[in-house]
Amino acid sequence: MVFLKKYCNLKANSILESVIALTIISICLYFAIMIFSAVFTPRTSAKFYDKQNKVNELFFLAQLRNDSLTSGNEDENLQIEEEIINESLKKINIQYKDSSQFQFEKSFYIQTHD
């Protein structure tokens, strides 16, 4: 054994430390990328919230001026569908598509007292 130590003097400690450090860095980088990709999804983008606010605005405009939005609408990017679920509940489905073909759809339920 002494003979082996005398003639085979390898500096494995620095190589081993480098491999362990690279492994730890790789694991930390993997977790950072996974957290980054989970946080920055299409549902958390500014475009998503902009379209959601636009659809909410269209819904409230439809409630105020129902005839001007539904009957005089020649915009192919906006679709408003009304469905009567039962005698006291109505469903309004609004689909809005912008110039980049990003489509947002939202459903509203309205209780009617007719």
Rank of each mutant, 00 (worst) to 15 (best):
12 A>L: 14
12 A>I: 11
12 A>V: 08
13 N>T: 13
14 S>K: 12
14 S>Q: 12
14 S>R: 14
14 S>W: 00
14 S>Y: 03
15 I>T: 15
16 L>S: 15
16 L>F: 06
17 E>I: 10
17 E>M: 03
17 E>C: 10
18 S>Y: 01
19 V>W: 00
19 V>F: 00
19 V>I: 10
23 T>I: 08
23 T>N: 04
23 T>D: 00
24 I>M: 07
24 I>C: 08
25 I>D: 03
25 I>F: 13
26 S>M: 12
26 S>L: 15
27 I>C: 12
28 C>R: 05
28 C>N: 09
28 C>A: 09
29 L>V: 06
29 L>I: 08
29 L>Y: 04
30 Y>E: 00
30 Y>S: 11
31 F>N: 07
32 A>D: 06
33 I>S: 10
33 I>A: 14
34 M>A: 15
34 M>P: 02
37 S>W: 04
38 A>Q: 01
39 V>K: 14
39 V>P: 03
40 F>R: 06
40 F>P: 00
40 F>Q: 07
40 F>T: 05
41 T>W: 05
42 P>Q: 07
42 P>T: 06
42 P>K: 07
47 K>P: 03
47 K>F: 00
48 F>S: 04
49 Y>V: 11
49 Y>F: 15
50 D>H: 14
50 D>I: 06
51 K>M: 15
52 Q>E: 09
55 V>Y: 02
55 V>A: 06
55 V>F: 01
56 N>V: 05
58 L>G: 02
59 F>P: 04
61 L>M: 13
61 L>I: 04
62 A>H: 10
63 Q>C: 12
63 Q>T: 05
64 L>T: 09
65 R>V: 00
65 R>C: 10
66 N>Q: 14
67 D>V: 08
68 S>C: 14
68 S>D: 14
69 L>S: 02
69 L>I: 15
69 L>Y: 07
69 L>H: 01
70 T>I: 15
71 S>G: 09
72 G>E: 11
72 G>S: 10
73 N>H: 10
73 N>T: 04
74 E>M: 10
74 E>N: 15
75 D>R: 09
76 E>H: 09
77 N>F: 01
77 N>V: 01
77 N>A: 06
78 L>T: 05
